[in-house]
Design a protein around this nucleic acid. Structure first.
Lengths: 327, 327
DNA sequence: TTCTGCATTGTGAACGATAACATTGCGTGA
DNA sequence: TCACGCAATGTTATCGTTCACAATGCAGAA
């Protein structure tokens, strides 16, 4: 910067002013400085700037290391929105999600100088950790369920689950079974609640809950059980990967979906439309989630009052895995 | 830091020495300083440190914005390895991959102060951009094909394609068709080369190339063509998603895989084992790729001579989508 | 005793920017 | 004509570190 100043015959402060479009610079001076900047191929040092301003224009994202479609899509949604807002994004992906790992990740990002962090913390344990971050630091939780003590951005899993369940009930199924995600996952809980509420609202029986772990394998294994249940005509599966495993098991057993059994998934991963049969599912708009999440975070950073709770609506996508029950 | 120094009754330099485990500090002094650090909950400011040392211990990853399994897995592989090496990771995901976007992304990360970048640049255009970064900056290209002018880490796509093709030939197919990825992708090119080489090495006819765009949809659409080809008994598809689309189309037309037609994919996405039928495919070890890639990058940063070309071997996973041809 | 040498600690100047305040020069109204 | 105000620019301190070197104290050797 002083080199630029020298070449342009001004002080470094004037260079700084040109860089910030300050109105207190004469046109001719501005031109000279800009020419010098180009000539020397000068690039401002963002770390020096961050040191003095206390803002790095960098955001952190803590995410759960996974090949799951949801978290990865959310991460990219946030990155895109952050980039558009002129923020850089640092990531920290966790091998295991619990209070100490989440706290450590946040601390590490903070030490690194980020202005705020988004935590993709779908597990209850992850949410708990967030209650304890110092309140002078901007944090937003993604997918943290409805009762977190800090700002949250989330898809409305209950609404999605209700839409899925209602769709099956409307087709004429007397009740709907549910293959849920693992216990400690907030999204799994919310989807269970939505499913229950939909059944109860029409007075349908609430069958025993089935538990998977999000993997196709677990869907396949639960398929074993499902094959033995004579009265089962409709299943709402908590994600598309498990639904895939289930479809596979049913196919192996010679059961026809949707004739013998209707299946609805959740997520709408890119593969779902090409399953056998193409899967009826709930689509989540992760890009929108990322945008809204970022907005919340920026409001906190800038000290503005932003939304403390952001909810994105999911959407039912009807394909060929659902039909009226056989009589 | 001066607060800590004052509390411990030493100079800021001594605090710095304690932080760096310098041997020139008396045990008692060290203890006093450490106590002060704990007492004040002092955290070093990494940006101030970066400003003076010129190293930020942060790496950049430029990736192509996508939900594709490969790039996302590679990113996480790199992040994990970087984290273990004590480096933070900043990401910049591109909407479109061409020379100017790649150059801009690298420049932006550089301005941000990263010590080096890994570019996940599977397109020829992306690779071209890398030829022009200043040579004083550490860059490694991931999946950039074999002829790049800078260090490269890549899966051996040719070997993978050869393994897939040979597997089909060994089953007794007289030749193997290939549903390739889009033209400008290096991985697509390499897989084509491997396929051709495998066919030529046994004197088999090299059939007309089929082109998709990695999406399940394109696999489905090419399926239309494939249905009309009477002499086609085996297809090597350049990724699992397209293979899924193809399987779907074949299923709709009543063709049985593998009885009527054998299919091999590439990637081994988590869903592949549960396709109908479970897909024979080529597995890529993205975690290993990330590790090796990071090692190359760190060697450059530290001025050591590291590998200039890293190749990770893929692995054939045989499932149920391949069989001997009907006679 | 006095000097040398090493272990330990301190001092001041970077690093590259912004912030706050100081200075200069010029047009303007009394 | 002269003080005043404002526009344009310059000066100096500061952010929180590390680096290079200076200074101190004490033990052992001459």
């Amino acid at each position: 910067m002083v080199d630029v100043a020298r070449l342009a015959g001004v002080s470094h402060q004037t260079v700084s002013r040109v860089l910030h479009d300050s109105p207190h610079v004469r046109g001719a001076t501005r031109e000279r400085v800009l020419a010098a900047i180009r000539r020397l191929n000068y690039r401002p040092n963002s770390m020096a700037k961050a040191l003095v301003t206390g803002r790095s224009r960098t955001l952190g994202v803590v995410s759960f290391d996974t090949t799951l479609y949801g978290p990865a899509s959310t991460l990219f949604g946030i990155e895109r929105a952050a980039h558009d807002a002129g923020y850089a994004v640092s990531i920290s992906s966790l091998r295991s999600l619990n209070r100490s790992t989440v706290e450590a990740a946040i601390q590490q990002l903070r030490d690194q100088g980020v202005d705020g962090v988004a935590v993709i913390a779908p597990l209850q344990e992850g949410v708990d950790a967030l209650g304890h971050v110092q309140s002078d630091f901007a944090v937003v939780a993604v997918e943290a369920g409805p009762d977190a003590s800090i700002p949250v951005a989330t898809v409305d899993h209950q609404a999605g689950a209700m839409a899925a369940t209602r769709h099956l009930l409307n087709l004429g199924h007397s009740t709907v079974w549910h293959l849920a995600g693992p216990c400690d996952w907030k999204e799994a809980d919310e989807r269970i609640k939505g499913w229950q509420a939909a059944l109860e609202s029409v007075g349908a029986r609430v069958p025993e809950l089935l538990r998977g772990d999000w993997t196709p394998r677990s869907g396949y294994e639960i398929g074993e059980k499902i094959l033995e249940m004579a009265d089962l005509t409709a299943v709402f599966v908590a994600n598309d990967q498990m639904a895939l495993g289930l479809l596979r098991r049913l196919h192996e057993a010679g059961r026809n979906v949707p004739r013998d059994l209707s299946v609805v998934g959740f997520d709408d991963i890119p593969e779902s439309a090409y399953f056998t049969p193409p899967l009826t599912t709930i689509r989540q708009d992760f890009a929108e989630l990322g945008r809204r999440c970022l907005h919340t975070l920026l409001c906190q950073i800038e000290g503005k009052t932003g939304p403390t709770r952001v909810v994105v609506d999911p959407e039912l996508v009807v394909r060929d895995s659902t039909a009226a029950p056989r009589r």
